[in-house]
Write a protein that binds this DNA or RNA. Structure first.
Length: 225
DNA sequence: TGCCAGGCCGGGT
DNA sequence: ACCCGGCATGGC
């Protein structure tokens, strides 16, 4: 790591929360499905949806490919946006099956091609794409999300108006391309965010990262959060 | 009880 | 290139 603040922030989070062991989910297909279902959605709702898919015995490439979208929608209902997400899952599964046949073949692509293909699928944006790359395909890709944006802008490591790729560049340009570090770092940001960096009722006063703010003389300004 | 959660798309400026 | 409305359930 060459940016001391990114290192310090990581250390503070790791000391506070310990290893997160992400992604929650044990198969690559489950991780991919979870990545789509968790779009703007609480993870507890996603779990219910995934459990429904498991109970129906269709949480694999074949099962998801064969299940009609309306039936899929009903099964994933608890995750919200269920009609939209059923379509997005079908888009993703269909693309892989038609273009590559199976997951091993698909995941044998190099990271650049894999990313390009994933993000070409309707319903797979930058975060969902990178989550799949990092957590399902084990590639050293840093995932950015709403919590990351709040944390970075709060700590004045980016501009408020900066976008996905500017934030991603901050991490990838200052950290070793280590997929285990990227995995843990992002998971810790989410872990921290759930307790201290929610959109409403943030708990900046009790946030473990306050030490970083104080060290750099950044004042708490809760108006922006 | 209203408001938010680990986004993304499409149409309008 | 942005900006915005729409998509929807479950939990606090």
């Amino acid at each position: 790591m060459s940016n001391p603040r990114l290192e310090e922030i990581y250390r503070l989070m790791f000391d506070r929360f310990g290893p997160q062991r992400w992604w929650p989910g044990d198969s690559r297909i489950e991780i991919m499905v979870g990545a789509v279902l968790t779009q703007n959605t609480n993870w507890s709702n996603v779990e219910k949806a995934i459990n429904n898919l498991k109970a129906a015995g269709i949480l694999d490439l074949e099962g998801l490919e064969q299940t009609p979208a309306p039936m899929l929608a009903e099964l994933i209902r608890p995750s919200g946006y269920y009609n939209i997400k059923a379509g997005r899952l079908k888009n993703l599964i269909h693309y892989i099956v038609r273009q590559h046949g199976d997951l091993d073949t698909f995941f044998s692509l190099d990271t650049t091609d894999l990313r390009e293909e994933l993000i070409s699928v309707k319903g797979i944006g930058p975060e969902t794409c990178d989550s799949i790359l990092l957590y399902a395909a084990d590639r050293p890709v840093f995932v950015i999300d709403a919590y990351t944006h709040r944390m970075l802008s709060r700590h004045q490591l980016i501009w408020e108006e900066d976008g996905y790729y500017e934030m991603q560049e901050l991490f990838t340009g200052n950290l070793n391309a280590d997929r285990r570090l990227f995995n843990e770092y992002h998971a810790l940001i989410v872990r921290l965010g759930k307790d201290f960096c929610r959109k409403k009722k943030p708990a900046c006063e009790k946030c473990p990262l306050r030490a970083d703010l104080e060290e750099y003389g950044i004042e708490l300004n809760r108006e922006k959060f």
